[in-house]
Design a protein around this nucleic acid. Sequence first.
DNA 1: TAGAAATGAGACATCAACGTCTCATGTGCG
DNA 2: CGCACATGAGACGTTGATGTCTCATTTCTA
Lengths: 196, 196
Amino acid sequence: MAVDREHVLRSAADLLTRKSTATMDEVAKAAGISRATLHRHFAGRDALVRALESLGIEECEAAVDAARPDEGPASDAVRRLVRELQPAAGLLAFLYGESQLWEGEPQNDGWAHLDARIGAVFQRGHHSGEFRVELTPAWLTEALYGLIASGAWAVQDGRVAARDFPTMVAELLLGGALRRETSHVPKESSRDREIG
Amino acid sequence: MAVDREHVLRSAADLLTRKSTATMDEVAKAAGISRATLHRHFAGRDALVRALESLGIEECEAAVDAARPDEGPASDAVRRLVRELQPAAGLLAFLYGESQLWEGEPQNDGWAHLDARIGAVFQRGHHSGEFRVELTPAWLTEALYGLIASGAWAVQDGRVAARDFPTMVAELLLGGALRRETSHVPKESSRDREIG
DNA sequence: TAGAAATGAGACATCAACGTCTCATGTGCG
DNA sequence: CGCACATGAGACGTTGATGTCTCATTTCTA
């Protein structure tokens, strides 16, 4: 009976990832509930997007936690990060596009916290000498979001296989960020394969 | 008297890059004309976006031409390409986001032509052994668009300096695509500096 | 200069999405 | 069983953007 708020948000995320301009009616239908009920749980479109924003931040924070960003080489941390972020990639792509519209509005500062955590990984890579200093942490963070969004869309349109997503994103990003002498990009250490 | 169609399109591109949901009224104001006149030149919002699409394709094609994609090392071709594409980056970012909405609609197949030309550069890099084969040309092309869009937004929000745009985008992209033994990224050859 | 053409300003109807509301139905719980 | 509550369906008014139209004004041109 009681609507599963989580399920509604997941459905909305799925739909809005594919069609960011979807109607409240479409969102409701996608979740299998009526528009009235949708409005009972989310005061309006804004409230829904805010909720999705919170969900996205939660998922990303959880992904960063799971990626153990402070452990081992920064490059491995980035690989883990991309892998952990993949489930949230679609939602992230939607929110990344949406964020271009919030001009001066009081946006959720959860993003700032997330940016800082991710930026710290790149910064760590700089200090350890793993990453090239020409590319700033801020830009690498931005590029990570951008590549994840591009990857999510490419997967959705069938231009990239879902199973290749982590490799495509992480190896492209790292190749640019990683300073290394050899052309061989190491496989992920076996320790990092327990999940994938 | 006669409205400068080019100027209207430029203004619209500038505005829509910053605010993709801008109203026809806002577009008109940004171009310094009345909404009525805007409608006289572009039958509606769709027509305007179509025109912007054509403009974007034109500019990209011109940029690819100017980048001499078949000359010299593929990596240098990519650097030239990014540099030539920078002026169109904002428009490209808008259209890239917009393209996520056209599901099955008959989109301008000028994009296919452009994709093919850009993809060919990466393919050339694969065949010559410059680029890593793990990253497909299709993905590299997608990533190029994504990074240009990310770069355009980062510049607009002041997170990246405009003058650093070509370096940030090209070096990140190439570092991932380029197979090289040394960590030193070569400066652009002096031949390529005549424009920048 | 006079006519033709283009523009600006604004009125107007239309339409789609929104948000609110009501009422009947169905489900869970005491 | 009977009550309370959540839902579904749909009506309703509102809003914002769109597209069309008119008319006075300005600008170009013959």
